[in-house]
Each structure stands twice: as C-alpha cells, then as structure tokens.
Design a protein around this nucleic acid. Structure first.
Lengths: 210, 210
DNA sequence: TTTATTTATTTAACATTGTTCATTTTATTT
DNA sequence: AAATAAAATGAACAATGTTAAATAAATAAA
C-alpha cells in the first residue's frame, strides 16, 4: 500500500525513507568532517570514513556516488560554517572597514586552524567534474560574500567609489587565498602572531589604510 | 684498479660513473617534466615516467629515493625556467614599474600555461618532509626574486620608500598565487583576455597605479 | 505467524599506484 | 673465459577507490 509516514525535517515534509536516507548521509558526512578537521585531508578515505560512521566501506556507495561527492558536501558545509563564524566574531562591530577586516581575519583564522579544509576547498584537484563548477564558484566568492555587507555600507556612505569597491573585492579575492597558501606551505613553523602581522599589512594595503 | 675516466659536465670534472648516473637521472627528470607539462600532475606516476624514460618502473628507484624526490627536482627546474622566462620577456624594458609588471605577468603566463606545474609548485602536499622546506621556500620567494631588481632600482631612485617596498613585496607574494589559484580553479573556461584584465587591475593596485 | 519479496549491508574481488626485494641481465675485472 | 660487481627488471605487497555478488534485515503478502 502506498502510505508513507511523514516526518518533519527543516520544515519540509518527507517520507520515512527519505528521512532515513538523510540520516545515513549525515553519519557519513559527520564522519568525513571530523576526520578532515582532526587528521586532515590525507586521512580521509573510503574505509576510514565508513568505519567512523559505523558501516562497511561499501555502504558509503549506497548513499553517495563516490567519495568525491561526499567530500564536496563537506566543502559546502565548511564554507557555511566559516561564513557564520566570521559573522559571529564581528557581531559587536559597526559596519565598515574595521568589521570587514575582522571578518577577513576570521576567514583566515578558520582555514589556518583547519588546514585540511583549506586544502580541500582551494586546492584539491576536485577530480570529479560534476560538482566542481558549483562548488568552486562558492569557494571563490567566499570573500565577496563575507565582505559584501561592509562594502555595500561603505558605498552607501560614499566612503568608497564603485571602482574602489571593485578593486577591493578583487584584491581580497586574490590575497586571502594567497596568504593562506603561504601559511599552509610554510617552511619553518611560523609564529602565528608574526603571520598575523603580515596579514594585517596585507589587509591594510587592500583597504588603503596607509 | 682505481682509475676513473673523467668527463666534463658543467665545468666540473666527474668520473664516468657519476656522469652515467647524472645522465640516467636526466632521462627520468626529462620524462617527468614532459608528462607534467603535457598531461599534468595527475598523469605522473612511477610507471608512466619510467616508461617514457625507457626503463622499468623499478629502475627509477636506483636513481631516486622515491617519486617525490624526482618531482622536487622538477619543481626546481621549473622555477628556474619561469624566472628565466620573466627575464627574457622583459629584456627590452627599462627597470621600473612597467618591467616589474611585465615580469609578474610572465610568471602568471607560465603557470597558467602549465597548470600541472602550478599545482605541483604551490599546492601539492609535498608528502615527503625531506626536500619540502628548501623547495617551498624557493617557491614563495619566486615573486620576491623576480621583483627584486626593479624594486631595488625604484628604491635607489627614491620612487619607493622602504615601507612601500615591503608592502609591495608582501602584496605580490600573496596575490600572484591567489590569481593563479583563481585561474586554475575557474568554473567556466574564463577568457584569457578577461583574466588578464583582472590581473592588470590587481597588479596596478599592488603598484599603486590608481 | 509464516513465507516471499524487496531493500540494505557487507564480503570478496579487481584496478591502480607506490614501493621493496630477489632474480636476471649486463658490464667489469681477473 | 671465468668470476665478480653493478644495473635493470619482474614478482609481489600494501594502500586506496570501486564494483558486484552474497548475505542479512526489513517489509509485505499469505
């Protein structure tokens, strides 16, 4: 008989089957995220993720096309998480240059803390072309999204011309990944404070604070 | 008997044995470089490199500790090559801002042409800690080295203060890899001209040309 | 409640890649 | 030409991604 029991997730009605499937996917996503944050990208593989999720490695393939699909989902989650973090850490500030700076630093802080996530988002060869497009667009535009409110504010207040705003966005879009790359590939264990000094200089240059 | 025949390589005397070993290494290095430039990083593996060099995969291990060592050598070669390219392409210009800009563009041109090389230099997880330090230092400082002559010139001519020079170097060090990353991870096949327009804006911002 | 059928999970197996080692081939010395 | 050293190789192993057949669990039908 075609009776589906319904359960509520995120405000939408779904069948039991969908609910269960969503939960299963959640277990694998959580497992992959944990490993990524803890041990980094290299430690993520079909077997390690499945084991942590409490299933056989083959079960993963019942819920994801392949390992790549799972990893892409993690990327999107991480992006959301770090955007939210930037928002929270700058809540106490008024819109404008200082808040923008704080938000950019929050992004850098997030990715330097979770290096595996940076590698994943900006670097990983994204083997599967499928999800690549949408995801890499999301990654690029991370700085744009995070800077948007403050740049709009400054534009409205005539603190910035349209052209200056465009240059600022381009600058942030390029220099943030550059700075993270620098930290990631560092040779000697750079002091985080020293690193942040350079970050400050770079951000001040982008914001024309000198 | 301990008689070694000598042969001249790069102006230094070496034994036959050393010469032969150097040649053998050269075959593998050339093979790896070709594959890197042609098919990219993903196509490089012990078997493909060895086959192109004309030997069994096991022979590679008689001349290199592992695949990583071979790849690191390639990185160093590529860095030299692209520095030289920047030099050549700007020979006709006088020292100063314009030449610096041309050299930066030459770097970008090199890495966007050979994407596998960019991935390799800036991204690849450099699994083996051994050569990593020295090499990643070389990679970072690529923009510094390439910009050095022009920045020194501008300092001498008082076209730049010490502080401005420092900021410029930091800016180039971060934004060039950022721009390359952008091109590499691009979603839709970006028109190279459009890309170069953005590169120009970024470089002009770094050079305070606006 | 028992049986049949569908669904979910897992074990076995294969392909690819990096690496090691014993064996074979080649070069050198006596 | 025989003995020895050096170089090159193929067989084999481990790790990883993936597929597909076999098993277990859940559900529907009787």
């Amino acid at each position: 008989m075609f009776i589906y029991l319904k359960a509520k997730i995120n405000g939408t009605m779904v069948s039991n089957k969908e609910l269960q499937e969503k939960r299963m996917r959640g277990y694998f996503i959580a497992a992959a995220s944990e490993i990524l944050k803890g041990e980094g990208l290299r430690a993520v593989n079909v077997r390690s993720v499945s084991e942590r999720a409490g299933y056989s490695f083959a079960t993963l393939y019942n819920y994801f096309k392949d390992l790549n699909e799972l990893i892409f989902i993690c990327v999107n989650d991480f992006l959301e998480e770090c955007e939210q973090m930037a928002e929270e850490q700058s809540q106490h500030l008024q819109p404008g240059k200082e808040r923008l700076k704080m938000r950019m630093k929050a992004l850098i802080n997030y990715f330097t803390q979770y290096q595996g996530i940076f590698e994943l988002c900006y670097i990983e060869k994204m083997n599967n072309a499928g999800s690549k497009q949408a995801t890499s667009k999301m990654v690029y535009e991370l700085t744009d999204r995070t800077a948007d409110a403050d740049i709009t504010y400054m534009l409205n207040k005539k603190l910035l011309t349209d052209e200056e705003a465009e240059i600022l966005k381009i600058n942030l879009r390029h220099s943030l990944p550059g700075m993270m790359l620098f930290y990631l590939n560092r040779m000697q264990p750079v002091d985080y404070k020293d690193y942040m000094k350079i970050v400050n200089i770079q951000l001040d240059a982008a914001l024309r604070n000198n």
